[in-house]
Write a protein that binds this DNA or RNA. Structure first.
Lengths: 332, 332
DNA sequence: CTGTTAGCGCTTTCAA
DNA sequence: TTGAAAGCGCTAACAG
């Protein structure tokens, strides 16, 4: 019921008989205003509980202190986590975040980019939808593309290939020699980097992994787990945790025990990875670092592209291939 | 490298020798402009790939077509899901969503509310942080509070109490008579509604459940699962899935089998609920409906508060209390 | 030190 | 049917 008609700089100026410019200066400590007057203005400002109008300021200065974050699909569990990291990094700079969801659709992605620019974001952080590239020079504001080291115009990303290598080395060290790779979508650069890293290591050990492509979802993992003949492999490496988890559930129903019959690894270290049984060996990205660098890039503080190391998280879904599973199996 | 200095209404006007007002009118189909001229203006506009400046328009009209969404903690898995529902509902109205995170801190919540208003949001959708209330009349824009039926000023919410009743009826029907309730935080209204519903039904069957309070997190669930003596109960109902899942993992380590030794239920139907083993019996909210109503409320289309029914999702974590678990137990 | 002036790009009376 | 003019609230020159 309060008459909260927001008060303007004008009101303060009028009540104190000074000009709006002086009020503006005083409040922002910009031009030189006498301490005494500054004090008075301050006092009056919060007597009126004055809050600067962001819109007007944005129009005048051309800066909105807002960044747009465009994710491919916020339904996939990694993206909220990532959005949170961006939020934190943005808040530290006094920036707000306008989020948009491409919903896996390149057209929608283009639309959102335009929309956000029209809404006056100062910069854009884009995780491109599969199979798309975002040309920074075609956009009117600084853009940080976050995807993979091999993505054109990429500004910050995890070293997915290195993550793949770590997984492979871990599996190899355990003694695995028949590897199935759930490679995810064919046109996802992130996935192909991960898979590339895995294959690289296995091939240099003289082993050729078997690849299967599919969506990156939990459901796709289930489907694969129901169809594939897992007895031919000692280990399975998935390009995404969601894929691995779906796969795990499906193969378990078919009597395949993890890790006794088959070792399994994922990628991303979703919260899920800890809670499935057995807990999943996976690779964790340093999302915080990626977010901070992306913000720093769009803020113009750096113009370098950075690739961040990943971390292997060993849990209970991987083990040595058991003699039992290899030879004298006789489980009911 | 392109000189993308965004073109304004002025440029179009100048090139065509008409006034800015006419251009504005033509482009929006408002005032009456001759079809011929309208056509010309349209053509010129997209020749210059004109995009209206949202900021200027917002300043002039006082509407930004942006809503603020304030969540208590976007790290908790339900909130991204909910944010997505809001996003969808907002997009249908041509609104963008500015998200903010209170991080569980009432002060932060206040700050964010002010901040969003200063940034010119037309409306606010607030899921209050535990123990706080948001007074709509103290805020300068329409606010939709989403929490629970008993929250002051609540505009849209699921019927958490009814959800609790459904859980209780299900458990009772199975024959459970010794119930442990993981009641979540004491000052969370949502949790107390859920728990209230559960207790209501059990009491009317002459059974007094045992309550334990804790955080609503996975970790808190683990801790409880390690500490509590579960042999005294036939079933455990948690106020949140995360709590239930943490609990499940911890009690399993102690040799308690679900549902053979103990039935377990959660609340929220997180994606997790399907993937844990055994899959969790839980209650699903209709987030989409809640989101749509909240948007419709802040758009001024309705002024009623609505409570939406929930759905019991029965999975494998609940079963009849087994004779074994009741009497002749002799597990080590 | 402080005030005046001139817009940012748009919409909206009000006249022509 | 069109145009001129007046701002929304703020900041950035430039004067005083």
């Amino acid at each position: 019921m309060s008459e909260t008609r927001p008060s303007s700089i004008r009101q303060i100026a009028d009540r104190l008989g000074v000009s709006t410019a002086t009020v503006s200066n005083a409040l922002r400590g910009k031009g030189r205003v006498s301490p005494a007057l500054t004090e008075q203005i301050r006092a009056e400002a919060d007597r009126l509980s004055y809050v600067p109008d962001h819109t007007a300021r944005a129009l005048r200065t051309g800066k909105s202190n807002t960044v747009g974050l465009l994710v491919p699909n916020i339904g996939q569990p990694l993206f909220p986590t990532f959005a949170q990291a961006i939020e934190r990094a943005a808040k530290q700079r006094g920036l707000a975040v306008l989020i948009g969801d491409s919903q896996g659709d390149p057209q929608q992605q283009d639309f959102e980019i335009r929309n956000m620019i029209a809404r006056g974001v100062d910069a854009l952080i884009v995780i491109p939808t599969r199979g798309t590239t975002v040309m920074p020079e075609s956009v009117a504001v600084p853009v940080a593309v976050i995807d993979s080291a091999v993505t054109g115009g990429n500004v910050a990303a995890s070293d997915h290939r290195e993550g793949g290598r770590k997984i492979a080395q871990h599996l190899l060290a355990l003694g695995h020699d028949k590897l199935l790779v759930l490679a995810g979508p064919e046109n996802a650069l992130v996935a192909s980097e991960r898979v590339g890293g895995i294959c690289e290591i296995f091939r240099s050990a003289g082993i050729e992994p078997t690849l299967t492509h599919s969506d990156a979802t939990f459901e796709a993992g289930c489907a694969l787990g129901r169809e594939l003949d897992v007895t031919r492999f000692t280990a399975c490496a998935a390009a995404y945790d969601a894929l691995a988890i779906g796969f795990a559930l499906a193969v378990r129903e078919r009597g395949c025990r993890i890790p006794a019959d088959l070792s399994l690894t994922g990628f991303d270290d979703l919260m899920w990875a800890q809670i499935v049984s057995p807990p999943l060996t996976t690779v964790r990205q340093d999302l915080e670092a990626v977010a901070v660098h992306a913000l720093s890039f769009v803020a113009g503080e750096t113009s370098t592209s950075r690739i961040f190391p990943t971390e292997l998280v060993v849990r209970q879904s991987t083990a040595r291939p058991s003699a039992i599973a290899q030879g004298d199996t006789n489980a009911e």
